[in-house]
């Protein structure tokens, strides 16, 4: 796992999250998609037991069931609207992205849950992320047809 993991929707800033999350696993238990995994021993003792999302294996579908069950407030319980989520920001690698390299592809655009808002197609039919709208759910990263996804979520970065 890279330095900063992707947290479930509503997570507070990473340092505070590590101090506040009680590692109870309730969010993972409630997640209907099994998107929330539990960090293990190899991620380090500080990380162990905390919830993480690995978009390439399963992204967050923004059902918003996990924030209200958090007993400690590590996930903001009042987070109700998916548009308000700020888990991270998707970044496109335009050197590798098929659409940016001239092949017709709109997988990320089509599957973005904030359709037509967080990812828009420019005049030359290339996807562009609107950083103000993107919630960081990772669905785009999950559906990217390139073997090493050319659109990836950078966790956190803002609150």
């Amino acid at each position: 796992m890279n330095s900063k993991p992707l947290r479930p929707p509503g997570a507070i800033a990473e340092t505070d999250f590590l101090a506040t999350c009680i590692r109870c696993g309730k969010c993972a238990q409630i997640c209907p998609y099994g998107s929330i995994r539990t960090a293990g021993f190899l991620d380090g003792p500080v990380m162990m037991g905390t919830p993480v999302i690995v978009p390439r294996s399963k992204p967050c579908y923004l059902c918003m069931k996990c924030p209200p069950v958090c007993p400690s407030g590590a996930l903001r319980r009042e987070m109700k609207r998916k548009e308000d989520v700020r888990m991270g920001i998707a970044k496109i690698d335009d050197k590798e992205c098929l659409a940016w390299q001239g092949t017709l592809c709109r997988s990320c655009y089509d599957d973005c849950p904030l359709f037509g808002e967080a990812i828009v197609m420019d005049k030359e039919l290339r996807p562009v992320v609107d950083e103000k709208k993107c919630v960081g759910c990772g669905i785009c990263e999950n559906v990217c047809p390139v073997e090493e996804p050319t659109i990836k979520v950078r966790p956190g970065g803002r609150t």
Binding site: A19, C21, R23, C24, G25, A28, G34, R37, T38, M48
Partner: peptide
């Protein structure tokens, strides 16, 4: 800087890891 007692709560570990086994099919080093 993190809730250390969580890693030392035997009832917590037993119940949470059982839940994890049922949900994720794996248990942790806890």
């Amino acid at each position: 800087g993190f809730p250390l007692a969580s890693l030392l709560s035997a009832p917590g570990i037993i119940s949470a890891q059982t839940a994890r086994l049922i949900k994720e099919g794996a248990v942790g080093a806890e």
